[in-house]
């Protein structure tokens, strides 16, 4: 899959060029170039503070950047146009470390909220879609539950269903298993893995190296706000080129 994505002349779904972002005088992204083809699964790894989450958050406009360009599906990201941003965000779903389910709504209504408001779906249609999506993440029986009645792993799977309800072309996963108890990580990763095999374009910041190695078509190693090394997982994990990546990988295996 990765080879096809890289060799075929397919227009990239996410195209980032010369992206720079600073908080005050502290530059956290120092010129990022990255193209992601449709169906690609890109894992972003690196030390904390390397800018990987910030990069992800730039892609759906949660963070503004100062310089460079970012297009999704050929459309440039315009942070000063709320209408254009809403268009874009319908194409880009995001899942967070802390789940961020809406605690005052049932699981079903969490999933239905955005489609009914943004896509103007009828209630019956949205409900059928929500039920199908919850079934897909293995939570068909939780439609009427409140989020705080669920385990962390279940909440994160609801969050995935909620993001999928908008039928995004790209899904951003920001350390989605980092807040989970170890025994709950597997159930979430299995859902993500299935999405990957079904052809969803995924960009994920992750600390689960075994998972990144298994599922991703390309791995991006970020260091000090730059893409330090990039390549297929076999290369990145099996044959790291730079001392920084070697050190990072060995620090994880300890």
């Amino acid at each position: 899959m990765s080879l096809a994505a890289e060799t075929a002349p397919v227009a990239p779904i996410v195209e980032i060029a010369g992206l720079r972002k600073s908080y005050g005088t502290n530059e956290v992204l120092k010129g990022i170039d990255l193209k992601v083809a449709p169906g690609e699964v890109v894992a972003i790894i690196g030390k904390s503070g390397s800018g990987k989450s910030t990069l992800l958050r730039c892609i759906n406009g949660l963070e503004e950047f100062q310089d460079g360009s970012l297009t999704v599906d050929g459309k440039p990201l315009l942070t000063d146009s709320p209408g254009a941003m809403r268009e874009l965000r319908q194409r880009v779903g995001m899942i967070f470390q802390s789940f961020n389910l809406f605690p005052h709504l049932t699981v079903g209504r969490n999933v239905m909220l955005a489609p009914t408001l943004v896509k103007k779906r009828g209630k019956a249609e949205a409900e059928a879609q929500a039920k199908a999506l919850l079934e897909r993440v293995g939570l068909a029986d939780k439609f009427d539950a409140m989020p705080d009645q669920l385990s962390g792993g279940q909440q994160q799977r609801v969050a995935i269903a909620r993001a999928l309800a908008m039928e995004p072309a790209v899904l951003l996963c920001d350390e989605i298993t980092s807040a989970l108890d170890p025994e709950l990580v597997g159930e979430v990763l299995r859902v993500v893995e299935r999405l990957a095999t079904e052809g969803m374009t995924l960009l994920m910041v992750t600390h689960e190296m075994a998972f990144a190695r298994k599922v991703s078509s390309r791995v991006v190693f970020m260091h000090l706000g730059r893409v330090h090394e990039i390549g297929p997982p076999s290369e990145i994990f099996g044959n790291p080129q730079t001392p920084e990546l070697k050190q990072f990988l060995s620090s994880i295996h300890e």
Partner: peptide, 21 residues
């Protein structure tokens, strides 16, 4: 929590919809 704003933003809700719902 800030995550509530971020989650609803990333679901393409408008400002008014975020507040209201």
């Amino acid at each position: 929590p800030k995550g509530q704003w971020e989650a609803s933003t990333s679901l393409a809700l408008s400002f008014g919809e975020q507040l209201r719902h």
